[in-house]
Design a protein around this nucleic acid. Structure first.
Lengths: 213, 213
DNA sequence: GGTATAAGTAAACGGTGTTGACTTGTCAAG
DNA sequence: CTTGACAAGTCAACACCGTTTACTTATACC
């Protein structure tokens, strides 16, 4: 019984006397829904937040969600579309790309991800969101990453790196924040760097389990 | 309009005249529910299968699910507990462990996972299942894997390998089966082997992004 | 000022997981 | 064989979900 009741008044008690010229403002209402959705999705995850709760938080009627966004799914799609995944990481010197990705991964492992990244981790499994998630993965990660790789099998190598990024999200979601948060950050960065480097390697030489099959 | 209607009679039309001695059999009913749940969860994923559908498929009343398993969640918990994740992979020569894991990963990448593994991939994001998933991850993967590692930071290194395994599941779930299925299986095995080896490496040497930060 | 139209609303629909009160079949004791 | 107790199974309801439809109401233009 603290400040966590979901039935709060709204982000701001809508003062209908502020401006007489516009009370019914489509764009403002839309934005209010979007802001509430982002806040609640970020805090609790997609499946945990009901349409009615979003509407109550935004101080609007439930039906407006479907009117403006088609369905609840459309709300998350719009929220997701706003945010960059790893801004600028995939651009730059390919030689130091693994290290840059690794640094982002360590940030995420230590809970310093953007709230929306966390929201997506919460929401990854929902099949309702698969199309949204797939599109985002493709356009924001696989394509730019593969585009900056030289050599053969760029797509496969990019997939392997993305796989690692996704795996960290899943591990954090399932195991909690403690999974890789302990230990030296520098060493973890080194580990991730070598892992990503292995993912992105142009050629792979047989290791540890030699040719004897 | 083929054979996919979910409203079929059940796994077998329950013939109440087969044996007059026992019509009300607690254990048989429980098992029937469990079998139906496994089949449907495997085929469609946890969230897509409703309690009522499971009950209808098993030919029992919905309330029995909660009577016998507490809640729908309990059904999945029991189904999951029955199945081994990677039988025997973590035991054996540590030197060839990365290759054994890699071979399992390639199997999974090519869609040859056990149906239950696929079901779990479908269902990973559901927070209702987080505790089940976490327990399974811990007892079936992290603990045995870390236990067979020598050297420092066994837990961290095991987490990194598990992270890769989980990432493949997420990638498959989001991107579909085509993600890593194309291409030469042998080469993919080599790639995964080197990645897992990087995850499990006892020590890590600075790579590619050198000391200049 | 009157009116078309968009913004916002209320109530319902079918669906979900879950629960409690109820019925009924089975088995053992009298 | 009858009777009772108890477990197995049933039914109807609860509260909630996402969504849709018909409706009211405020706004902006003529």
């Amino acid at each position: 019984m603290s400040e966590e009741e979901p039935e709060m008044d709204g982000p701001e008690a809508v003062d209908e006397c502020a401006d007489h010229t516009r009370v019914r403002d489509r764009e403002a209402t839309r934005q209010r829904i979007l802001d509430s959705a982002r806040e609640l999705f970020t805090r609790d995850g997609y499946a945990q937040v009901s349409s009615r709760r979003i509407a109550a938080h935004a101080g609007v009627n439930v039906a407006l969600i479907n009117r403006y966004f088609g369905a609840k799914r459309g709300l998350l799609a719009e929220v997701v579309a706003e945010e960059a995944v790893f801004p600028g990481v995939f651009e730059g010197d390919p030689a130091t790309l693994p290290r840059r990705i690794a640094e982002q991964l360590v940030h995420r492992a230590r809970g310093e991800a953007t709230p929306l990244q966390r929201a997506l981790e919460h929401s990854a499994g929902d099949p309702d969101l698969q199309a949204i998630y797939a599109e985002r993965l493709e356009s924001a990660m696989l394509v730019p990453l593969a585009g900056h790789l030289s050599g053969p099998d760029a797509r496969t190598r990019a997939s392997l790196a993305v796989l690692t990024i996704l795996g960290l999200g899943t591990l954090r979601r399932v195991e909690g924040a403690t999974a890789l948060a302990e230990g030296d950050a520098g060493e973890l960065t080194e580990r991730f760097t070598s892992i990503i480097a292995a993912c992105l390697a142009e050629t792979v030489s047989p290791q540890s389990g030699p040719s004897g099959d």
